[in-house]
Design a protein around this nucleic acid. Structure first.
Lengths: 256, 256
DNA sequence: GTCTATAAGATGATAGAC
DNA sequence: GTCTATCATCTTATAGAC
């Protein structure tokens, strides 16, 4: 139920092929000060929004901060995206599509490789986590910021349920279904809760808060995502095996 | 280095015994409209802040929203706490002290019980997680909101490192030290990372976003914290065992 | 597509009466 | 300890010139 911006197109049509040539300073541009660096305004805004939303949250990063960081005019957020909320949506969409495609590709690859059998638990968990941790660690500052934002969204009462569901759960369903095939005796509820634990452990990693650095006296570094990945996969796999190897009807382990 | 509020005490002295009697409407109060329900203004503000910070984040919950929800005047936040940031600090302190005390008590109890041996992994993890999940599930709406806030703070780039360290790491250190005694052959880095995974899985649970409800088609409910606890302890314990049973020098499992 | 200018209201914080 | 009133600034968003 968003207010409809009167008398103007919400999203200007944009042929994907018509991306402006990356020239720096040419002849006569009407007035524009900074479509600079050959990066289109739209992308500049997305980059800055990603960075500031990650740093200070959706409410903490203002449209003014964002446009200032992007080096473009304040009004251009509303011109290109329609509203601040719609800007957040665009930020999340941009990279989630890339990630979802890669995750599906990797999952399918390890399923195919194992045929006519099934892939191992570790292989599937790896296909699910590696695209994310790898890009956060090696994809550059944009990806790093994106995952920092995901970390906050996932744990947010306000956004967690809707946004994560919308952008990631289609792929998560395929992932969970595969896991259930590998763990045929499991109670489906156990599998879902194990996925939940994986999600929490993974997204806290994205936040790179530096807490573990302090806690461990420098032994561990938040930014060392390879070390995390090396450990996250066997940690989670062991958890899945502990809970999902048996049917566990009627509740496990009552306490007290 | 916060600005020093000129010419006024930042925190008015407050004898703990002098809590006003819980009368509803008596004779002649000078002008006050709502110290109502026998709940002191300070507490009313803390309750409302907790609720709104949990719902919309620190930046998303305004001082005006908070005081309106508390039914008190806007100016009273600055009178009682000095600033919005200081209000957040007070919100976090209030319940963390209770939790830390209970966690230490439970941990010590299971250490004593096991003497001259050591407690089990499951017992220690239970002592660490049960006070939180139990209060979130049965402590009432104030506790529920508090943990929702913790969920966001833990995954926040802005606050995660400083705030979690300040309020919880003293107890976490004791916890980790105990775990290392139980897992004498482990690489300390593995133990820290396992704690990190536990922290992520636990705090995502606090957020109760409803995502798992949707994903599981209603099989799991975010609000069913007993089910989570039942599974979290063995999940995490299995993860610890998988990683921390061996010294693992020189990095485990290289991938590709 | 980008700019200037501004609307219309929200924000954190303070001074001073009571 | 609580109120009224207000400050100075920031907020998202829009209208219209170029």
């Amino acid at each position: 139920m968003q207010k409809d911006p009167p008398g103007r197109a919400r999203r200007p049509a944009r042929g994907k092929g018509s991306t402006p040539a990356p020239e720096l300073e040419t002849a006569h541009r009407p007035r524009g000060p900074r479509p600079a660096q050959g990066r289109p305004t739209r992308e500049r805004i997305l980059d800055a929004a990603e960075k500031l939303f990650a740093r200070r949250g959706f409410h903490g990063g203002s449209v003014r901060d964002i446009t200032q960081d992007a080096g473009v005019d304040v009004a251009l957020v509303n011109y290109h995206f329609g509203s601040k909320q719609a800007l957040l949506d665009s930020v999340l969409t941009r990279r989630s599509e890339i990630l979802n495609a890669e995750r599906m590709r990797l999952l399918q690859a390890c399923i195919d490789k194992a045929k006519p059998g099934l892939p191992t638990l570790d292989e599937v968990i790896d296909a699910f986590t590696h695209p994310l941790l790898n890009r956060s660690g090696r994809g550059g500052p944009g990806w790093k910021a994106y995952f920092g934002l995901i970390a906050q969204v996932n744990n947010s009462t306000e956004f967690g349920g809707v946004i994560m569901t919308k952008y990631f759960d289609p792929v998560v369903r395929v992932f969970v279904d595969t896991l259930r095939k590998i763990l045929p005796d499991s109670d489906p509820r156990d599998v879902y809760w194990c996925y939940h634990f994986l999600s929490g452990a993974l997204t806290l990693t994205f936040a790179e808060t530096g807490r573990i650095d302090n806690l461990s006296g420098g032994l561990c570094r938040s930014s060392d995502l390879d070390s995390v990945h090396q450990r996250l996969v066997p940690f989670v796999a062991a958890g899945f095996r502990a809970l999902c190897a048996t049917p566990s009807r009627g509740g496990r382990r009552s306490k007290g």
